[in-house]
Simulated assay, not measured.
Amino acid sequence: MANRLLFILLLFLVADVYFYQAIAMLTQISLIRVLYWFPDVLLITGITLAISARRLGRSAQNMMSWLITGMLLAFVPKLFASPILLAEDVFRLFRGFPPRNIYISEATVAVAGIIFLIFLFGLTRGKHFYRIRRETLYFPDLPEAFDGFTITQLSDIHSGSLRDRKGVKKGIELANAQNSDLLLFTGDLVNNMASEMDPWISDFAKLKAPYGKYAVLGNHDYGDYIRWTSSLAKHENLRRLKEIHAELGFNLLLNQSVTLRKQGQSIALIGVENWGKGGFHQYGDLEKALKGVADDSFKILLSHDPSHWDEVTVDHNQHIHLTLAGHTHGLQFGIELFGFKWSPIQYFYRQWAGLYTKDGRYLYVNRGFGYHGLNGRVGVWPEITVLTLKRNEGTIATA
């Protein structure tokens, strides 16, 4: 993973150097040319300092968040506009490399400016540009009483990053407006500390569903990413976070299962603690969570990190029909248009957003309600998922 991050940083820097050729073509003013590199120096210095101090507390993490945002604003528009210069160079190659065309340089800068404005929207309005994503899933062994049963899934609230109460309330109202039978939350209620949720308890407690609200913990909920004064303080933080789940009306599933009943029939709802690969803690215990669950039960699993599905769940001897996850946020940056889907996060996670299937087992990865790291979202918008379960011999249909 570190090598991939280094590659992305090098790609940004190469694009920055390449884009500078358009600036140099358009101006001969030395001050402008020097000022072009000023943001780079500030960002690289700031990121170096933040990385060295990132485990010291929330202030260092907040600084890193703003630096990541600044880096994307500074580099990504140049990265996407630079292919125009590259195309020009292909033609220049066969013409003996004459001077650059000023109009092509102007077009390159204009494209970068448009992309910059799109990013600016994402970093302001995009934080609460909620999208309702609907999927209808078909299962031949779904109990008849649950035919048409609806689930609203939320994930990754990250309350420590939230600032706009009006925007957050809009998302909560949208979730309630779906009138789903069941509401499921797949982890990361906070960034690090339970106290981050205190200002938002009354708002999120308004979430409702007739068959209940259930949740699991995400990797950020354990407080593993900041330095605590003592192990007791860290333990108390987690205890308080579990208490907050109860205040929100969430039934927290900690490597355990519950039975949901309707008209004399039932399905099993299973929740594991966070389990991730690539250095993430593996608190989750699927075997423990499945104790007492009959092999022939229809099973829905809540597991924060989608790598758990890939590494453990999909090949488990018990057939788990549907797994719900979050965690990736779709990196809060990417392109999703007309069925096309791309984000740099796909080079780290095979399952990173939306619906996946293997051997009759399904995984849905929610893109997240909140945001963390990047102070906004660009192209991969915050999500409220609505799943409809249907009893049928057919295949998956997307609404």
Score class of each variant (00 low, 15 high):
2 A>T: 15
6 L>K: 11
7 F>Y: 10
9 L>T: 07
9 L>W: 11
27 T>M: 04
27 T>Q: 04
29 I>H: 14
32 I>V: 11
33 R>M: 08
36 Y>S: 05
45 T>F: 14
52 S>G: 11
53 A>G: 09
55 R>N: 15
58 R>G: 10
60 A>P: 01
64 M>Y: 11
66 W>F: 12
67 L>R: 02
78 K>R: 13
85 L>S: 07
89 D>Q: 13
93 L>W: 15
94 F>G: 10
100 R>L: 11
105 S>M: 00
105 S>F: 02
124 T>M: 13
126 G>E: 11
136 T>R: 12
139 F>R: 02
139 F>T: 00
151 I>G: 03
151 I>C: 06
153 Q>S: 06
157 I>K: 05
158 H>E: 00
158 H>V: 03
162 L>Q: 13
163 R>W: 05
164 D>M: 05
176 N>K: 02
176 N>C: 03
181 D>C: 06
195 S>T: 11
197 M>V: 15
198 D>I: 09
201 I>R: 00
202 S>C: 01
206 K>C: 04
207 L>G: 07
215 A>W: 04
215 A>N: 03
224 D>F: 03
225 Y>S: 05
237 N>F: 10
247 E>Q: 15
248 L>F: 05
256 Q>A: 12
263 Q>I: 10
266 S>L: 00
267 I>R: 05
269 L>H: 04
270 I>M: 09
273 E>W: 05
274 N>F: 03
275 W>H: 15
277 K>R: 15
281 H>V: 14
284 G>P: 03
284 G>Q: 01
286 L>E: 07
291 K>L: 14
296 D>L: 04
297 S>Y: 08
299 K>W: 02
299 K>Q: 04
310 D>W: 09
312 V>F: 04
317 N>W: 10
319 H>F: 15
329 H>A: 00
331 L>K: 10
334 G>T: 13
335 I>P: 01
335 I>T: 02
335 I>S: 09
335 I>L: 14
336 E>K: 15
338 F>L: 12
338 F>A: 15
342 W>E: 01
348 F>M: 12
350 R>F: 12
352 W>Q: 06
355 L>Q: 11
357 T>G: 15
361 R>Y: 08
362 Y>F: 14
365 V>A: 09
365 V>N: 08
369 F>L: 06
372 H>K: 09
374 L>T: 08
383 E>C: 04
384 I>L: 09
